[in-house]
Design a protein around this nucleic acid. Structure first.
Lengths: 336, 336
DNA sequence: CGCGACATTGACAGCGCTGCCAATTGCGAT
DNA sequence: ATCGCAATTGGCAGCGCTGTCAATGTCGCG
C-alpha cells in the first residue's frame, strides 16, 4: 500500500507538505501543490482513513440514523445526504434503529463505535426528544431536518403549511366540496402544519370546517384505511380525502375501492410524500413532493459548517389521477 | 476519553492483556479476564476503532452495496445483515451505487475510502459480472447472494424454482386455466428459475404452455403494465397473470383495473418478493416471501468465516386477495 | 524433586497520519 | 543592498491499538 511517505519522496518534498495538500491547508505554494498532486496521481495514492482519524482525532464520518428502511422519505434523504458528504470528502454511514431499542442504547451504539463527527436526523426521529437529548449528552454534533425547532442541534426546518394549503385548494378547484382530512397523531408536531394548511384552504374556498371530517391516523396504511372507513360511513360522507401521508392515502384508496367507489369520480384522494407506491396505483395518487435532496444537502452543509449558500427549498404539488381524471394518462410508472 | 492504558492500570495488568481480552484471544486466565472485564465495565471503556484499524490493518467493516434504496428486497437484506454484523463485533456500512456510475468507479470508491474487510452484494448487483470482477481485482473479500454461481466470491444461492412452481400450482388450483407469465429479461439469470418453475407447474397441472402467454418485463411497474396490456389484448386473454416480481404485478393490476376487470374474479394476479407495496393494494397481492433475513445472516456468516451452522432457508407463498377472494380479509395493512 | 514444554504475561516497536514548533525562504520597505 | 516579518517548509512526537518476541509462571512427567 502506498503511503504519504512514498508520495513525499516521489514529489521531492517533505511528508508534511503532502499532508497539507491533502487537507487543503493554506501556506502551500501552487507550484508545490501541483507537484504533490501529480505524485499522488501517478502513485494512485489514497490516504489511510484510519490513520487520519487516529491522528486528527476526528472521523470524517457523518452518521445518518434511519428508523425505517422502507420509508422512501428517509431513504431519499439518505441518498442525497450521502452524495453531498462525498462532495465534501466526508463519508455518510447509515445506522438503522432496531425496533424496541431505547434512545440511549441507540445513541450509545452509534457514537461509541464509529465515532462520527456529526449525526443527521430526519423525521420522525428528529422530533424524538429522548434521542436528541441522548445525542446532546454525548456532545456529538447534530443536525435535524425537523419541524420541532427547539432543542439541541442545528435545524433545517420543514414547512408544510403552504403546500398543504395548495393541495386542499387544488381539490376544491376540481369541484369537490366535502373535503375530509386524515390527520397525523397529535404528538407529531410535524404534521400539524399540514392541518393548518388544510383549515386555511377550506376557509379560503368558503367551505365549512367540520370536526367529523377530521380523523386521526398514525401514518400507516392500516390507520388510513380505518380512518377512511369511518369517514365513508358518515351520514353525509366526504367526496374527497386528503391524507397527510401517502401510506394513509393508499389505505383510504383501498377502503374506497372495497365499497365500490370510483376514484376520483365518487371520491378524490390525495396524499403527501410522493412515495414510490403513489405512482404504482391505479389511478396514481396525487401527492406532495418535498424538496428532499435540497433539504438533505442543506443539512450536511450546516453540519459541516459550510452554511453559506444554502439552497432555497420549494415543495411541489404532484397532480395525478386520484384527484384529476385527465392526469392519469401522463403518469409513467417507475420502479417500486 | 478512556484508553486501553487506563483499563490496564485499573485492572493492575499489562496493557497487552487487556488487548487480548478485547480480541478474545487464547492464553488469558479466566480470573485475569474477569478483572479486565470489570475494569472495562467500570470505566465504560470503548476501544478506539481507528486505532485498531491502523494497528491491525483491517477495518472491522463490511460494505453492503445497494443499487436501489427503494427496493424492499435490498433494504430488508441490509437490515438483517447489519444486525448480524453487530452480533459479531463488525460494522456494516452502506454504499449506494449512483446511477450512471461505472462498476470500476463504484468499486474504487468503496474500497479506497473505508477499506472494508469484505463486501456483500445482493441481486441485481450480485449478478453483475463487471462489479464482481472489479472487486476481485482489488482483492477484497466478497460474498454474493445470487443465482449466478460462477465467478469470484463466496455464494449464498438463491433458488426460486420450487416456489415459483408452487405459486403457479396455487393459481391453477383456484380454477384458472389460462395462466400467463410476465418474465424477467433474459439477461437476468436470477429469474430464469422462476420461469422454469412456471413451466413445470403448467405441465403438472396439464395446462398447455403457450408462447404468447409469456411476455418479458424489466422488473419495473411500467414494464409490467405494458406487458399486461399486451396480454389482455390477446384474442383469448389469460385469466391469471404471474409476474416475476411485485413491481410488475402492480403494473399488471393497474392495467387490468384500467379496462374495468375485477381482480381476482376476471383475472388473478400474483407477484414475487412480498414488497411492502404488495400489502397496500386493494385487493392485496398474492406473492412470494423469500427468507431474506436468513439469507443475509448466512451471507455474513460466510464472509466472516463462521460457516458452521448456516441456516436452512425456505421461501413462502403469501396468498392474498389478488388470487383468492376470501384471503383479502385476513390481510392487515402495514407500513408502506 | 528437577527439568522441559507450554501456558501466560508484558515490553516495545510501529501502523500512517496530523499538530506543534522550529528552520528556511521570500519579499517589501529602508 | 540590508533588515524584519510573514509566508513556506520540514522534523518530530504521538494518536490508541496490535504484532512480535522475550520474560515469566505453571504443570506434567520421569
Amino acid at each position: 500500500m502506498v503511503t504519504i511517505y512514498d508520495v513525499a519522496a516521489k514529489a521531492g518534498v517533505g511528508m508534511k507538505t503532502v499532508s497539507r495538500v491533502l487537507n487543503n491547508e493554506a501556506h502551500v505554494r501552487p507550484a508545490m501543490k501541483d507537484r504533490v498532486m501529480k505524485a499522488i496521481d501517478e502513485l494512485g495514492y489514497r490516504p489511510n482513513l484510519a490513520a487520519r482519524q487516529l491522528a486528527a482525532s476526528r472521523s470524517f464520518l457523518i452518521t445518518f440514523i434511519l428508523s425505517d428502511v422502507f420509508s422512501s422519505y428517509q431513504t431519499s434523504m439518505l441518498v442525497a445526504a450521502s452524495t453531498e458528504c462525498r462532495l465534501r470528502n466526508y463519508h455518510l454511514v447509515v445506522e438503522v434503529r432496531d425496533q424496541d431499542e431505547t434512545a440511549e442504547r441507540l445513541v450509545e451504539r452509534v457514537t461509541a463505535n464509529l465515532r462520527p463527527d456529526g449525526i443527521m436526523l430526519v423525521p420522525p426521529l428528529s422530533n424524538d426528544a429522548a434521542i436528541v437529548r441522548a445525542i446532546e449528552s454525548k456532545g456529538t454534533r447534530l443536525v435535524r431536518v425537523a419541524s420541532t425547532l427547539s432543542g439541541y442541534g442545528d435545524i433545517v426546518p420543514v414547512r408544510d403549511t403552504d403546500v398543504s394549503h395548495k393541495m386542499v385548494a387544488h381539490i376544491a378547484a376540481t369541484g369537490k366540496s366535502r373535503i375530509a382530512l386524515i390527520a397525523p397523531p397529535f404528538d407529531k408536531a410535524a404534521a400539524s402544519e399540514r392541518v393548518t394548511g388544510y383549515r386555511s384552504a377550506l376557509a379560503d374556498a368558503r367551505l365549512p370546517y367540520r370536526a367529523d371530517y377530521v380523523v386521526k391516523g398514525d401514518f400507516t396504511f392500516a390507520s388510513g384505511k380505518a380512518a377512511a372507513e369511518q369517514l365513508l360511513a358518515l351520514p353525509e360522507p366526504p367526496d374527497a380525502i386528503f391524507a397527510t401521508n401517502d401510506a394513509m392515502a393508499l389505505g383510504a384508496m383501498a377502503a374506497a375501492r372495497q365499497i365500490g367507489l370510483d376514484i376520483p369520480r365518487d371520491i378524490a384522494i390525495a396524499g403527501f410524500d410522493d412515495s414510490p407506491g403513489s405512482r404504482t396505483m391505479y389511478p396514481p395518487l396525487t401527492t406532495v413532493r418535498q424538496p428532499i435532496p435540497g433539504m438533505a444537502r442543506n443539512a450536511i452543509s450546516v453540519l459541516l459548517g459550510h452554511a453559506d449558500a444554502l439552497e432555497e427549498l420549494v415543495p411541489e404539488l404532484i397532480i395525478r389521477g386520484s384527484t384529476q381524471p385527465g392526469a392519469a394518462a401522463e403518469v409513467h410508472g417507475e420502479d417500486m
